[in-house]
Design a protein around this nucleic acid. Structure first.
Lengths: 184, 184
DNA sequence: TGTACATCAGTGAACGCGCGTTCACTGATGTAC
DNA sequence: TGTACATCAGTGAACGCGCGTTCACTGATGTAC
């Protein structure tokens, strides 16, 4: 941070952080570049130099989010190799990084055909499937089911639809729920 | 419809239909009352008389959505009593009424404490749990799991995250996936 | 070590736009007598 | 059957606001000599 100088130092990073903050507060819908510039303490025309426009910024954000998810998932797998713990980690990611999560799965907000983004998303998918390539149908369906289950639980929880005391860590309930369907 | 007269006839209905149309096209984020008035062929101050403001309109929309979901779910249950078919119907609802679905689960967009809305949501929850009140923990968890699974599948599909050919009816795959976890 | 110059990140004024909201209004409809 | 009146749905002009985008600019930094 240091004291304000003419050159910011790392405005790109500061704008992304401001976006995370803003989205956490009010969701991705009402995001405005001018607001982000304000939060970063910079003139409203500043963001243009780093991200061309709003979709540009959100593309960068989603890319970062996918890499963060990849890191979360790969940190789990070697320990247990369990689909259950993978699902729990997925829910934990959504809870800990709600802003990233909400942007990542709303591709209408960003440029879904961006090269860097697609690469990051593929890495996340690989981490989710644990390196199993071209699985047989039943394994593929079980994987899809586990993913859907974890994703649905996370989404419903984020939307406040689940009858869970607010502010309680959702991974506790998530583990019970995931277990109840007998993940392999 | 008939020819345009000074009084519209059923502007409330027309505005809700316009909202469904607009949301289906571009998502709930960019919705504007002025656009809905335009679509309904009415002056831009018209909507105020029926819905005070945007959250007011979306509250009405979500309420209608919950009732539609209730109808869909209750239509299934007596036939089969199966959690599997209930899940398939849930996914089918999301696909057939994407605009309703997208609003219903984004409570930040409307007044979640509205009395009519809460009543409609409770009716939908009852339909989902099939009238089982105060279930034991394991049944409750299995229900939550089935709901999460169906909801997650629907959400991922709507977001284009699933490797399914576009325009293919998702309930086909949904049935396989739901079955693969051995729903009771 | 000093000077000249290129590069580029951030500035701030200006623009046009669509939005929500307010307001006095007017046309249509229904009801009382 | 006709007339008077109340009600209310929809009008259209006006307002202020925040937004994205453009543009000539200026301050800071780094590099060549």
């Amino acid at each position: 941070m240091a004291e304000r100088t003419y050159h910011h130092g790392d405005l790109r990073r500061a704008l992304l952080d401001a976006a995370i903050e803003a989205i956490t507060e009010t969701g991705p819908a009402g995001l405005s570049l001018r607001d982000l510039a304000r939060r970063a303490g910079v003139s409203h025309a500043g963001p243009t130099h780093h991200f061309r426009d709003k979709p540009g910024l959100l593309t960068a954000l989603a890319t970062e989010g996918y890499d963060l998810l990849t890191a979360t998932l790969t940190a789990v797998r070697p320990d247990t190799g369990s689909l259950l713990e993978l699902g729990v980690a997925y829910v934990g990611f959504a809870a800990a990084h709600r802003a990233y999560f909400e942007v990542m799965f709303r591709p209408d907000l960003y440029r879904a055909d961006d090269v860097l983004l697609m690469a990051a998303r593929n890495r996340a998918t690989d981490a989710l499937y644990g390196g199993v390539t071209d699985p047989p149908d039943d394994v593929r369906e079980a994987g899809l089911a586990a993913w859907s289950l974890a994703h649905g639980f996370a989404t419903l929880w984020l939307g406040g639809a689940l009858p869970i005391p607010p502010n309680q860590d959702p991974t506790r309930t998530a583990r019970q729920v995931l277990r109840s369907l007998g993940s392999p």
